[in-house]
């Protein structure tokens, strides 16, 4: 499999502030790659350097075998960028917007209609961009990034400020894009998003990449406890102590009892024997725990 993006020891500072501090990674062709981190971690700056919008102070970037800086017009038609925020022409309708962006790449209006269909905005074709909802605008902006069939797609926090339903719709769309064989690079500060979508995730903080791995491997590599939760009030204190003895720590907040354990099988079997599985929830380690483990602090987006 060939490599789409190769980033080697890239650095960028603004005055005294080091935004990107020696970042290296590679993204394979057709891979869904996530850059995850809190705001200010350096995700956007890293992405903008790869896209060729900014010049790195040091290090090298190779995108589809070419250097994106300075502005490389041979490379531009092969990449699609969805920008943070919504960069549209004012007062144009959704369709006019797509037709205009398409023609900048020499793509005809038919393709614009097909893209509207793909992102589910056919019924909004005649609506001005100012009148679109946050989710619709975001989908249109992704459609604008895809109208010229790019090989590599960059998405900068595409689901920021969307409601849960709109986020789920967008995730389906992103999976489709990746399923068509495109390389997708996504920045996000949502752990669940990265976990669901990405083949591999780079966890970034303070301008550095802490770890790169598939989400499942990151979580597995973490020797984290499992949290088992059942409803309170069904279990006598003596039984509770017996079940937890030696295998779990317990916490009862009056509504639920939480067992934190490294031996979930034993705890679950005991709970089942006592027939107290009401309201059962089992939560394994997540990327959030990975972040906590890597940075030593709670993840705050």
């Amino acid at each position: 499999m060939s490599v789409s993006i190769r980033v080697a020891d890239v650095r960028k500072s603004y005055g005294d502030v080091v935004a990107v501090d020696g970042v290296s990674f590679e993204v394979d062709q057709g891979e869904f790659f996530g850059i995850l981190g809190p705001n200010g971690a350096g995700k956007t700056t890293t992405l903008e350097i790869v896209e060729g919008l900014r010049e790195a102070d040091a290090g090298s970037v190779e995108l589809l075998g070419m250097s994106p800086w300075p502005r490389n017009t041979a490379l531009l038609p092969r990449m699609g960028v969805q920008l943070q925020g919504t960069a549209f022409f004012e007062r144009l309708t959704a369709r006019e917007q797509l037709v205009t962006f398409g023609s900048l790449y020499g793509v005809g209006p038919k393709k614009a209609d097909a893209m509207l269909e793909t992102v589910g905005l056919t019924d909004k074709a005649g609506t001005r961009v100012e009148k679109l909802s946050g989710g619709q605008a975001q989908r249109l902006s992704i459609a604008c990034a895809l109208v010229h069939d790019p090989e590599v797609v960059f998405l900068d926090e595409p689901t920021a400020a969307l409601d849960p339903q709109a986020r789920r719709n967008l995730w389906d769309l992103l999976r489709t894009i990746n399923g068509e064989g495109r390389t997708v690079v996504l920045t996000t500060h949502h752990m669940d998003e990265a976990e669901l979508l990405c083949d591999r995730v780079a966890i970034m903080d303070h301008g550095k990449i802490l770890k790169i791995d598939p989400p499942a491997a990151l979580v597995r590599g973490l020797d984290a406890a499992t949290h088992i939760t059942v409803d309170s009030g069904h279990l006598a204190p003596a039984d509770l102590a017996a079940i937890a003895d030696g295998v779990a720590e317990t916490e009862d907040d009056g509504a639920t009892i939480t067992f934190t354990t490294r031996d979930p099988s034993t705890v679950l079997t005991a709970l089942a024997e006592h027939r107290v599985l009401n309201g059962l929830r089992v939560r394994g380690a997540t990327l959030e725990d990975v972040f906590l483990e890597l940075t030593g602090r709670e993840y705050r987006a």
Partner: peptide, 17 residues
């Protein structure tokens, strides 16, 4: 100014224009 503020110019810069 508005195209720069709204990043429309940046978007155009990313097209071969």
């Amino acid at each position: 100014v508005t195209w720069r503020q709204k990043k429309t110019l940046r978007r155009i810069r990313l097209a071969p224009v």
